[in-house]
Computed example of a mutant assay.
Amino acid sequence: MIFIVASLCLQIVCAVHVIRSGRNQIWLLFIFLFSLLGCFAYLVLEVLPQHWNNRHLRTARAQVAVKVDPERAVRDAERSLDLAETAANYIALGDAQAGRHRYAEAEAAYRKALSLGPGNDWGTQVKLAAVLFERGESAEALRLLDAAPELPRGSEWDRRALLRARILADLGRSAEARALFEDLVERIAGEEARCHYAAFLLQQSDTYRAQAVLEEVERRARRMDRTQRAAQAEMYRWADERLAELRKA
């Protein structure tokens, strides 16, 4: 009896959705004629495709894919290289290895791409600088960044500037790093720059400013939905933990 009632309720919900959304009303026949099977077909063929390209849904799918098969991007890049050893395929392999935090392998792939390319591939050179920084080779990373041509202000300039600020901090050029961080946190969308700045401030023992920055991260995070936060869950967890420690001190 409960199953029949639940089935009827689902049919009514689907039928109302068909009418309100203006879909082909032939679906009403399928829904009421085939019961649950008709509802399932309607949801799969009509409702889900409409939302399949939703940004939040794409993010969720990507997160699930990484958890289920974290090596897929690496395997795909390696298969592409088996077919053709091109600069683009080596860059894809470098991106996949960097995503798995295998910076030595990523460095090798990016260097190979640069050797195969026509030259002046500044985008790949910046990626190489990023993995060199992660490997602790900050001086070489800064040299590569300095060799890249100056860009107009925009998202790519901001991305490079954030990397530069982190490198400068690692090299002990604290005043330069702080000035660059202060500029970036006012302009870059998202909280990555603020979290890196807070980490730098904590290293400098400037707990007052670090707490203010982390509280801003907390305020902004409250406006996000769960999917948006999940995309950088580890970063937000770190921020929450550091802020809790500062508030206890």
Rank of each mutant, 00 (worst) to 15 (best):
124 T>N: 10
126 V>C: 14
121 D>E: 12
141 A>N: 03
113 A>V: 08
107 E>P: 01
149 P>F: 10
147 A>P: 01
127 K>D: 07
128 L>C: 05
102 R>S: 11
133 F>L: 01
108 A>Y: 00
113 A>N: 07
152 P>W: 07
95 D>T: 03
96 A>E: 04
142 L>D: 13
107 E>Y: 01
112 K>L: 02
127 K>F: 03
148 A>W: 07
134 E>M: 14
148 A>H: 06
105 E>G: 08
125 Q>M: 15
141 A>E: 06
132 L>T: 07
105 E>H: 08
94 G>K: 10
131 V>P: 07
139 A>V: 09
116 L>K: 06
154 G>F: 03
124 T>F: 04
106 A>Q: 10
119 G>I: 13
129 A>F: 05
128 L>R: 10
127 K>M: 12
101 H>V: 03
126 V>T: 15
147 A>K: 09
98 A>T: 07
135 R>V: 02
104 A>H: 11
99 G>T: 08
111 R>M: 09
124 T>G: 06
133 F>D: 14
107 E>W: 02
105 E>Y: 01
98 A>Y: 06
135 R>Q: 15
125 Q>S: 15
138 S>D: 12
123 G>L: 13
127 K>E: 10
104 A>S: 13
131 V>L: 12
97 Q>M: 14
138 S>C: 14
103 Y>W: 15
92 A>P: 02
133 F>T: 00
146 D>I: 04
120 N>L: 14
149 P>Q: 07
106 A>I: 06
135 R>S: 13
146 D>P: 01
154 G>D: 12
133 F>E: 07
101 H>I: 00
107 E>F: 01
151 L>M: 09
153 R>V: 14
121 D>R: 09
104 A>C: 00
146 D>M: 08
99 G>L: 08
111 R>P: 02
137 E>C: 05
149 P>E: 08
146 D>T: 13
114 L>T: 12
122 W>N: 05
115 S>D: 15
97 Q>I: 00
93 L>Q: 13
96 A>R: 08
116 L>A: 02
118 P>Y: 02
108 A>F: 01
143 R>P: 00
151 L>W: 09
144 L>F: 08
132 L>W: 02
100 R>S: 06
132 L>G: 05
102 R>G: 00
147 A>M: 06
122 W>F: 14
133 F>V: 00
119 G>Y: 11
101 H>P: 00
137 E>P: 00
147 A>V: 04
112 K>G: 00
109 A>C: 10
113 A>S: 11
141 A>H: 04
143 R>F: 00
129 A>R: 04
136 G>W: 11
97 Q>H: 11
143 R>N: 10
115 S>H: 12
139 A>H: 11
144 L>Q: 11
99 G>C: 07
127 K>R: 15
147 A>E: 14
